[in-house]
Amino acid sequence: VLLIMLIITIPVQTHAVKLDMPQATPPATDAPPPPSVELEIDFDGTYIWNGEAISRDVMKYRFQQAAKEDQQPEFHIRPNRLVEYKYVAAALADAQRLGVTNIGIVGNEQL
Rank of each mutant, 00 (worst) to 15 (best):
V1A: 15
L3P: 07
L3T: 08
M5I: 05
M5A: 10
I7H: 04
I8F: 03
I10N: 00
V12I: 06
V12R: 13
V12Q: 09
Q13N: 13
Q13M: 07
Q13C: 02
T14H: 12
H15R: 06
A16F: 04
V17D: 03
V17N: 00
D20L: 09
D20S: 10
D20T: 03
D20H: 09
M21V: 12
Q23M: 10
Q23Y: 00
A24I: 10
A24E: 05
P26A: 13
P27I: 10
A31K: 15
P32V: 06
P33H: 01
P34I: 02
P34L: 09
P35S: 12
P35W: 02
S36F: 04
S36M: 09
V37K: 01
V37E: 05
E38G: 02
E38F: 06
L39S: 04
L39Y: 11
F43I: 03
F43Q: 03
G45F: 11
T46D: 11
T46Y: 12
Y47P: 02
W49S: 11
N50L: 00
N50W: 06
G51A: 07
E52N: 13
E52G: 07
I54A: 02
D57K: 15
V58C: 00
M59W: 05
M59P: 08
Y61F: 04
Y61D: 15
Y61T: 15
R62A: 00
F63W: 08
Q64H: 07
Q64K: 12
Q65A: 14
Q65Y: 06
Q65M: 09
A66V: 01
A66S: 14
A66D: 12
A67K: 07
K68E: 15
D70I: 01
D70Y: 07
D70P: 05
Q72W: 01
F75R: 00
H76P: 00
H76F: 04
H76Y: 05
R78V: 13
N80G: 14
R81I: 11
R81N: 15
R81L: 12
R81K: 14
L82C: 02
V83W: 11
E84K: 15
E84A: 14
K86R: 14
K86P: 06
Y87Q: 06
A89F: 06
A89H: 07
A89L: 09
A89Y: 15
A89P: 01
A91E: 05
A91P: 01
A91M: 10
A91R: 08
D94V: 07
D94C: 11
A95C: 09
L98R: 05
G99R: 12
G99L: 10
V100R: 09
T101K: 13
I103L: 08
I103Q: 00
I105F: 01
V106W: 11
V106P: 08
Q110E: 13
L111P: 11
L111D: 10
